[in-house]
């Protein structure tokens, strides 16, 4: 059912116009990529502080209080531009292995951030000024760094059609991961 919906979505006039546009698509894509510097950049800075690798004499609350709004602004731009890109070719991205891994890892990053803010960060007043934050915060920072790095790498690789359903033969697990059965059979 989701395939039929995405197939229909990809045939709507606006989706076709966006994909075939000379400037709109590249501009949306460029905004998506350049905003990485803001969103992932600000996230990295905060994660490095949480791991105790950088900004050791700057309290953690300074980052979660003053920098987080910038991270959120970046996240909104990433989401809007990302959804527009998805809208331009819904079915292709849905069956793209890298896109699927990227979405999964973003869910992991989201859960990690949620757990940190509900957990260790609630007691940040007691440890926020420590050069090396407690274990839970260091783990949250490390998981976040690894997850967003993987999101960036898989995000970049979405552009390649190596594992697309119409490129066959592929190993069984690739077709499974890409959800190709319905297409190939």
């Amino acid at each position: 059912m989701i395939e039929r919906f995405l197939g229909w979505l990809g045939e709507t006039p606006w989706s076709v116009a966006l994909l075939e546009s000379l400037y709109a698509w590249p501009l949306v894509e460029s905004t998506h990529v350049l905003t990485l510097g803001l969103f992932v950049g600000a996230t990295i800075v905060m994660d490095l502080r949480l791991t105790g690798l950088a900004f050791r004499d700057v309290p953690v609350q300074a980052f979660t209080g003053r920098l987080l709004p910038w991270t959120h602004a970046g996240f909104i731009v990433m989401t809007v531009t990302g959804l527009l890109l998805l809208y331009s070719q819904p079915l292709r991205y849905y069956h793209n292995v890298f896109f699927r891994v990227k979405v999964l890892v973003m869910v992991v990053a989201g859960i990690n951030a949620f757990v940190f803010h509900r957990g260790a960060h609630r007691h940040a007043t007691t440890w926020g000024a420590d050069a090396i934050p407690p274990r839970a915060a260091r783990i949250a920072g490390t998981v976040s760094l690894a997850a967003w790095a993987l999101v960036v790498v898989t995000g970049r690789l979405i552009a390649y059609n190596w594992f697309d359903c119409d490129i066959q033969p592929q190993p069984g697990w690739v077709n499974w991961l890409a959800g190709c059965e319905a297409v190939t059979e």
Binding site: V40, G41, V45, V153
Partner: peptide, 24 residues
């Protein structure tokens, strides 16, 4: 096949770190 995409991806990771280090 893989070198260019991988270099591109690492180039982007560098961009993220550069963005963070500059913006802050």
């Amino acid at each position: 096949v893989w070198a260019f995409p991988i270099l591109e991806a690492v180039h982007l990771l560098g961009l993220c770190l550069l963005g963070g280090a500059l913006l802050v």
